[in-house]
Design a protein around this nucleic acid. Structure first.
Lengths: 206, 206
DNA sequence: TAAACATTGTTAAAAATATAACAGTGTTGT
DNA sequence: ACAACACTGTTATATTTTTAACAATGTTTA
């Protein structure tokens, strides 16, 4: 099934909200409830849910439990994804601890750094190795995704290694864009850009 | 001037790359160079630059210095934006240190936390106050944007306070969506969603 | 100097995404 | 039982965003 990128993103958001509501003991949810909690529109919600072939019950909305499962089938598929995080500074730590406890089928299986202080320590439940161990660990742990949270100076060099060892996807928090072959999926996130965007729209609305 | 949201984001990225190239002593840059460094297309670059009314020199590309200035006029306008960061955990620290040294017209002017250990300390060049001081500091420092990097449990409560004190924009890294009046610009970023997206496309391409 | 070239700038077309409109349908209330 | 209702599901339309096509033009080269 081919789903729009944007729908994929929203599905992930839906799931989080749904889990949240489930915890609170809620069993059903209307499209407009989901929408308002996420600042989407109800139509958009219904459309996305249509696209994944789930159908709710009339007048009662969607069965939260079922919808979570259906989203899981789409987003997670069969596969459990093993990731590594490269650079265990503040951002690296933030992300790993962020993932702990979140019920996803993605696991951060190892971390890498160059700081001797961190090597072989377990930080946020993830063991940290020296960056020279990347190849070894990637093979051992069947890693497909890397999260780059290291200093920009070293980023390209590490990226090259990852590519060499068969990485399939990269989530890049480094401020510089990486030079990576086409067939590898790269998602860049740049905090400064987010910030500048907020500032722009704040200063341009009246 | 009304610019597409997407163009705004890209302009921010261009500027970063341009600064980068300027540092290296480069004076001119072609649309295709900019594009390849960012994984955009040359046409897109040219179109964005057209939209902001800058025009390059034929056969030599764009004058980096001039283009940076023009982007600055668009993105920054007159205004210097003062921001606060709420929650000085790993993510809060990562973001503040990320901003230091980046030449933007956005300044993180204060941080807030509840941890007594952090109160009144200067972390990444930003002084940290107890969260009860928000109102006081917002007035004093003329704050328009808040970055939320605190635990989700407390997020809504703090958000309400920010709204009450006239915040204009929020960059929300909390995993829960905030209930905020329409007229305030909110940008949500969710790391788990980014991660799930990468995993999805990694597991679905062949 | 003139032809070939490489690049920008711009308009037009295509693709992706979001919104609207409304039909279908179980549920509730009378 | 039947009418009014409040939802979902889906098709159609509109908007936004990207991509393509190509005209315009200064630069280089022969």
């Amino acid at each position: 099934m081919i789903l729009p990128q944007k729908s994929i993103e929203r599905l992930s958001r839906y799931r989080r909200i749904l889990l949240n509501n489930l915890e609170k003991g809620k069993e059903h949810i209307y499209s407009h409830e989901l929408a308002s909690q996420l600042h989407f529109t109800p139509v958009q919600v219904r459309r996305d849910i249509m696209l994944i072939g789930y159908t709710g019950t009339q007048r009662k909305g969607y069965v939260i439990k079922e919808l979570i499962d259906r989203i899981g089938e789409i987003l997670d598929g069969e596969s459990h994804t093993n990731a590594i995080i490269i650079g265990m500074g503040n951002l690296g730590k933030a992300i790993t601890s962020y993932f702990n406890g979140k019920r996803t089928n993605i696991e951060i299986a190892a971390a890498f750094d160059t700081d001797e202080q961190k090597i072989n320590r377990v930080i946020s439940n993830v063991r940290c190795y020296h960056i020279s161990k990347i190849k070894e660990k990637m093979d051992e742990l069947d890693i497909s995704v890397a999260i780059m949270t290291l200093a920009p100076e070293a980023a390209q060099e590490v990226a090259d290694q990852l590519v060499l060892n068969g990485i399939k996807g990269i989530l890049n928090f480094t401020s510089i864009p990486l030079n990576i072959p086409e067939h590898i999926y790269v998602e860049d996130y740049d905090m400064v850009t987010s910030m500048e965007k907020v500032a722009y729209f704040v200063n341009h609305n009246e």
